[in-house]
Structure formats: structure tokens, C-alpha cells
Nucleic acid binder design. Structure first.
Lengths: 233, 233
DNA sequence: CCTTTTACTTGACAAATATCAAGCGCTGGG
DNA sequence: CCCAGCGCTTGATATTTGTCAAGTAAAAGG
């Protein structure tokens, strides 16, 4: 049902790396890997957390909001899990999820996870670390929102994007602009204007292609700090 | 060094409730309980996480921000811990903390915690649950910020405050208004105006005393949802 | 008791952000 | 190839939120 290659990808996740083979097999019993096309809703906020989802390929958008207005909370890329906290607490999902590319999603029954925690200390330890990391990521996102303006958030996003791709000054936006706008907490119109505002700081945009020519100027504006912008800090 | 009463309070924390006495004793070795006056900075963001802090009495404000502007991220009240994630990851604090009342703070060496996790599965399990709860709390806060206007955030805060105190329609603000403003992501001036905006919805304010006379009207405006406003969901 | 400070409020104004409407330029389907 | 649809941009305007300045009220301290 699952190709060895994909299975290995999941095995290598920090979350599962240190558990023994038997425990890993038990965990995956009843799991299934499925390929979804773009723009498919995988989970809806408020639903019970029956499965832990692992993005093996593609990309998934976590979003929230009812009655018309909604907001992108995060983008999940391979290989990582999402909504782990809901699974552990056996609580309803706080966010909805949909694919933004064709994606391979592994779904592991929540009960397997909960039993695994109880019986396997190595898994429990990995979970503690994983959740602590998730918590810190959301806190950083919170700080980003509360302490920075829209233009600053965009500037920092671009700096990080460039740095992640080697700091060449040339990068491509990995997501649609309207999704980026929502992720950064603004409207698409505002994102366009924010790009225009950054032009004097050496930011040029052509479609999805980004060019940063005055990184130092941009940094002076963005004032990046590891305690917000470094995912590993 | 620590009164039995205070010790018991800490023992009853969900985080420590299920571990055995020996493990608890080991955990508390080298810890100390200290009383701080109001407005004392306990930790500064960026510092290494040497201690897990437990608020045994009083109240602590978690905040962030440099160069003049800062923002309140959370208020921690007895009996609970803060900055657990930093301790676990052995990473720098993401937020600063200061007392907003005279407070009794128990400080547990981080190394005790990390050793405890490795050796005691019960502690690991409790941590997983605790962290999952913390994660969900921050996600809710994020949704609150991204999906609601300042007035809506205030309305929901007041509804929750009243509900927590029995839903009598009469409550007192437990924190200063300027702290509340920052917690809700607005300026003190804006908070004053938000209160004025809510007057037609039955909200009256006299000093710290709040009276809600048209709860149903207020709910229609606030549109509270458990997935943002219920700390237990 | 008076003085000084501090929190809060209010008003006028400025800046940031959202909304509405129109138009441009791809892209994909017939 | 043409056309329709969609994402994006731009302009005009409205709303929200922040800033600055002044004033009031209440608390803290001598």
C-alpha cells in the first residue's frame, strides 16, 4: 500500500526516528497513504481529530475562519506532520486544512498515536520535543503579527525565503500571492502595495520571481531577529 | 525553604500530579521559591532557559519587544508554569516576563526537568499533554488576532471574563487597562474607544468594574466560538 | 492635607489597512 | 485561435487603528 521510499521518509521524521521498528509498525497499522489533487479540503476545524496527518509530498494550507472571511495560519511542506496537538488531546481540530498542490498525505489513526505514547517512552520524548517546537513556532508567528507592520512582515518573509535558498538574491515565491497575503495577515491588494513600498529597498517582482538587490537596506527596514524569524531558534 | 502548603500546590499541578514522590523530590532539588514585588522583570527574551518558572501566587505578564514598542503576549496566574517549551528545547526564551502583582515564583533548574523527562515516562506523558494545551492556546490567540477586529476581541474578552466568574453580568477587570489593551493588541486609547463602542451593547465601565446588561446583544456582536474562546476546547 | 505622579480618557489628526471597482495579463478550454 | 476565467494590480475611497496633545481623576507619597 505504501512504497518503501515513502515509508522511509516518514521513518526519518524526527518524531519517529528514535522509536524501534516494532513500535513504528504498530503505529502505521491501519494508516493509509493517499494522493489528493489541489484544493481539496482534508480536515475541517471543529471535527474530531481521528487521524494524524503527515505531508509526504505536495503542500498543505492550514487556515481558519467561517462566514466568508478566512485566514491562512500556516503552510505545511514535506516531510512534516500537522495537528499533532489535537490528536494528543483528543480535541477538535482548531484549523482546517486543504491541499494547495497535489499532495501525498499519510493518515495515521489517532488511537495508534495515543497508545504509542503510553507504551513507548522514546515516542513520548520525541513528541515533547516536537510539540515544544510547534509551540515556539506559533509564538514567533504571534510576535510577528503583534510587533510588526504589514510591510515589515513581508520584508522579513522575503529575507528568510532568500536565505533558505542560499542567499543568492534570486528566489521564487513558493505559494500564490493571495495565500501569502493571508499568511502575512493582509489583503491581496495590500500585498501588492507592500511590494511597491519595498521597491526602493531593492525588491523587484515579476510574476513569482523575486529579486533582492539591496539586502542590507532591506534588513535595515525589516530588523529581522532570530527570536521571530529563525525557525530553529 | 518552602512551605508545605506551597509545595502541595505545585504537587497538584497537572504537570507533576502523576509522578511519584521520589521523582518529584528529585525535580525540586536545587529549586527555590522566592517572593517578588510588583513590576520586577523575571526573565528577558533571548536569555538561556536555566529555570522553569512556576507562578505559585500573584500574576506574571509575558511580553515581547525591543526598541520602545512592546506587546503583552499573555498573563500567567497561579498555579501554572511558563516558558516550559524553552526549557525542554534548551533554547532561549522567546518572551520576557515581569510580575504585575507581588508574586511567589518557584524556580526549578532546567536540568532537573530534562533529566526527569528522560527517566520518568509519567512526567514525559504529562509534558506532552501540557505542551499540546499550550500550543492550542497560542493558536487560539493567533486566530483571535487574525480573524477579529479590536472591538470584537474586547467583546469576547469581556464575555469570557464574565462567564469565568459565574455569568452574573458583574465583574472586575483583573489587570490594568493598559495591559489589557496590549494583550488584546491595541493601544490604551483604542481600548477606551472600544469600551465606548460597546456601550450600546450593554457594556458599562466604572474604573475596574464591568457591567454587562445585554449579554445576548453582546454575543451577537462578538460571535464567540469555543475554538477561539474556550480555553478547554 | 497638599502635591506629584500615574492611569485613563477625550479630541483632533495622521497613518495603516480594508473595501470597492475597474482593468490588465496570463492561462486553460473549447 | 479566441474567449472566458482567474489572479493580480491599480486607483479612489472608507474604515480602522495609531499618534499626539491636553485634560481629568484617582492614587501614592511627603
Amino acid at each position: 500500500m505504501m512504497r518503501a521510499e515513502d515509508r522511509q521518509k516518514v521513518r526519518d521524521l524526527r518524531l519517529f526516528r528514535d522509536i524501534d521498528d516494532a513500535a513504528f509498525d504498530a503505529l502505521l497499522a491501519g494508516s493509509y497513504l493517499q494522493r489528493f489533487p489541489t484544493h481539496v479540503v482534508l480536515i475541517r476545524e471543529g471535527d474530531p481529530a481521528d487521524f494524524l496527518h503527515v505531508v509526504v509530498g505536495g503542500a498543505v494550507e492550514l487556515f481558519s475562519g467561517r462566514n466568508g472571511s478566512e485566514s491562512t495560519m500556516d503552510i505545511v511542506r514535506p516531510v512534516s506532520t500537522f495537528i499533532l496537538a489535537a490528536v494528543i488531546k483528543d480535541a477538535p481540530y482548531l484549523m482546517s486544512a486543504r491541499t494547495i498542490e497535489a499532495s501525498d498525505i499519510l493518515m495515521i489513526p489517532s488511537s495508534n498515536l495515543r497508545e504509542g505514547i503510553a507504551s513507548d517512552p522514546a515516542l513520548g520524548l520525541a513528541m515533547v520535543t516536537e510539540l515544544a517546537g510547534c509551540y515556539r513556532a506559533v509564538v514567533k508567528s504571534n510576535k510577528n503579527l503583534k510587533l510588526r507592520s504589514a510591510v515589515e512582515r513581508l520584508a522579513n518573509y522575503l529575507l528568510r525565503l532568500d536565505a533558505d535558498q542560499g542567499g543568492t538574491g534570486r528566489t521564487d515565491l513558493p505559494i500564490e500571492k493571495r495565500v501569502l497575503a493571508s499568511l502575512l495577515g493582509m489583503t491581496p491588494e495590500n500585498l501588492s502595495r507592500a511590494f511597491a513600498t519595498l521597491k526602493p529597498y531593492g525588491v523587484s517582482v515579476t510574476g513569482t520571481a523575486i529579486e533582492l538587490t539591496k539586502i542590507e537596506d532591506l534588513k535595515r527596514l525589516a530588523k529581522p531577529t532570530p527570536l521571530v524569524d529563525d525557525p530553529d531558534a
